[in-house]
Nucleic acid binder design. Structure first.
Lengths: 235, 235
DNA sequence: CGCCTCATTGAACTCCGTCAAACCGTGTGG
DNA sequence: CCACACGGTTTGACGGAGTTCAATGAGGCG
């Protein structure tokens, strides 16, 4: 009972802050009276939502759970482009080549809203504010991508990891959750592939942070005792 | 005389392949009969077109010359996000926060077309294909940013530099110029800040490539003798 | 010619990747 | 219930690619 209520509340929160909200709340229904969103698509842990290189048929918004957006890297491994939290949109990058540029994989059981591409197109054509919203979303992702890129290229491993934890805490806070203590949805390898370092380095740096008393990390549970120290990490 | 003809031709080429072409060639003029583009804005070497953090008032397309798009990095230095060649668009990333995310600086004397933001907005609202084109541009840049990001994180310095030279050659070829011999519009520091390495490493790797007989590099003049060898560089 | 910036080269150091082993939590089967 | 196996995590030792510091060389411009 408690779990159900909690899940409903989490969804409500997700919709309130959803990146695709303007699409769901278009002033006028679509011509053929179809619902904008085919909701309730559920994914199990490890399930692939869409794969890099395949034709894009929809865009998505995360209602509950977490996903990773990853690009395959020649040779071995992958590059984790970004982690998707509830309210985040995915699949917008496919507007360009009409092919998905990344692969989206569920990190745990989750639920996503699916908006077929022709609906997006029709909504954008009919409502300028929807089109403008999509531009804003894309531009925001672009600016963020380059900001992360800039950091990656010039910052040390501890600084990257500190930034990662703070970023996650911030996104958590945006969604109305405790930003000092949370559970990591991803494993060490995925963190490493996101930051461009190795699992061993992730582990070593975390123990260093722990030794400084800045964080408590046990498995995937994280508590940030001193975010300022992390922010102030030199170099 | 020869110079003038050459300049005119270069502009024609730039317009033919311009990323903002659909805006200039809207089927119907704007209501108030204003020209879409305030062209002929000229920049001297080192001049700033727009600065990160300032409000965005226009988007731009490069007609002639070269610019760099850079993000300031906390501490020291900057991260060069991308180099702009004739035909490239700039300033689209400001759609998000309505602030420029990067700084654009002319690398040499150049000429850009300026499209005021309200014109962009009106064109996008009036013509769905213009809106769709803007989405495609943004999505393309986003996919490219992440692709570069993925490469950066996992590749060695020589591989990065090899990729950089090949990328530049390719973009040169796209514009109808010789792709085997060209002049670098940027200095070593800017290359280094683009690739996330130091100037010294850039220099060392270039001498290594030279020693292998793969390239001739003298100052900013570059000749690629063996692009395949660069492409095949291990790791 | 001299000054300044940019590019190159050299030598010492360091951070991080690689390889390898130990550790831990969880699930499985006896 | 314990033993065992297995994946993910942690820790250690070592080496190498690239940074840092410092000095020299090469153009460009007054």
């Amino acid at each position: 009972m408690v779990a159900r209520a909690s899940l409903a509340k989490r969804r409500q929160l997700a919709c309130a802050g959803c990146a695709l909200r303007p699409l769901c709340h278009a002033p006028v229904p679509l011509p053929d009276a179809q619902p904008v969103v085919d909701c309730r698509r559920r994914l199990e842990r490890g399930e692939v939502l869409f794969e890099a290189g395949t034709p894009q048929s929809s865009v998505f918004a995360v209602r509950a759970g977490f996903l990773k957006l990853a690009a395959p890297v020649e040779g071995s491994g992958e590059h984790v482009v970004r982690f998707l939290l509830p309210g985040d949109a995915a699949g917008l990058e496919g507007f360009g080549a009409r092919l998905h540029a990344f692969t989206a994989v569920a990190l745990d059981d989750c639920e996503v809203c699916e908006v077929p591409l022709q609906h997006v197109r029709r909504l954008a054509d009919a409502f300028p504010n929807v089109a403008a919203h999509l531009r804003r979303l894309l531009a925001g992702e672009l600016a963020e991508a380059h900001a992360r890129f800039a950091g990656m290229a010039h910052l040390s491993a501890p600084k990257r990891l500190a930034g990662f934890l703070l970023d996650l805490a911030g996104r958590w806070a945006e969604r109305g959750y405790a930003s000092r203590a949370f559970r990591l949805p991803m494993d060490r390898r995925e963190i490493a592939d996101h930051l461009g370092i190795t699992v061993e380095t992730v582990s070593r740096v975390l123990t260093e942070f722990r030794a400084q008393g800045w964080v408590t990390v046990k498995g995937r549970e994280v508590i940030l005792h001193d975010p300022e120290a992390l922010r102030a990490y030199p170099r």
